[in-house]
Design a protein around this nucleic acid. Sequence first.
DNA 1: GTAGTGATTTTCT
DNA 2: GAAAATCACTACA
Length: 203
Amino acid sequence: MATKILPRDFYERPTLEVAHEMLGKWICFQANGTRLASKIVEVEAYIGQDDPACHAASGKTKRTAVMFGPGGHSHIYLIYGMYHCLNLVTEPDGKAAALLLRAAEPREGIKTMLRNSPATTKPEQLLSGPGKLCRSFGLSLEQNRFDLTSGSLTVEDHGESVSRICQTSRIGIRKGTEKNWRFYDADSASVSARPKKELASTR
DNA sequence: GTAGTGATTTTCT
DNA sequence: GAAAATCACTACA
């Protein structure tokens, strides 16, 4: 199966549509000659216009500027001072929206990922969460605003698909939990499912 | 086994 | 000065 990098057209469509099709695609990153690749199994949609949880909801800032630009770019930022989150910008230029990659299944470069995450020993748990995903990939603010169509960070179609897609409320945010914009592969062991906390909205 | 809390830095008000 | 889309460790049953 020939692999192909997703064109910018793929991203510049309605975010919820892209989110659905993003599951099963591969996220790939080349670092120091090592190729890392993993299958995306969990994403969340953040749409600036009608989403109180989106960082871009309260206006365009330096931090969220890339979300207002054209789709097909990476948006990485630091959360809670210690962890990074990787977003894929969607929608055409001028509309703020992005997909947060929450979890993936390791496919290539697992050895390197294990070295990046010493506390994690099981491969299926290397990428079971947005913070862990970035740590295992070695992503930081250096990779912010990368072009996903022509850089060392890309999303590819390997012909894999997801058998069952679940749609639930989002996790780990304090506003906008009523939006059911979280999508994940129901059959994957790498999903960062936390059923008990999903029901409890307060913290 | 579940539940609760601390870590740590970038960005915005 | 405060918040932020998280994770891992500790305590206790």
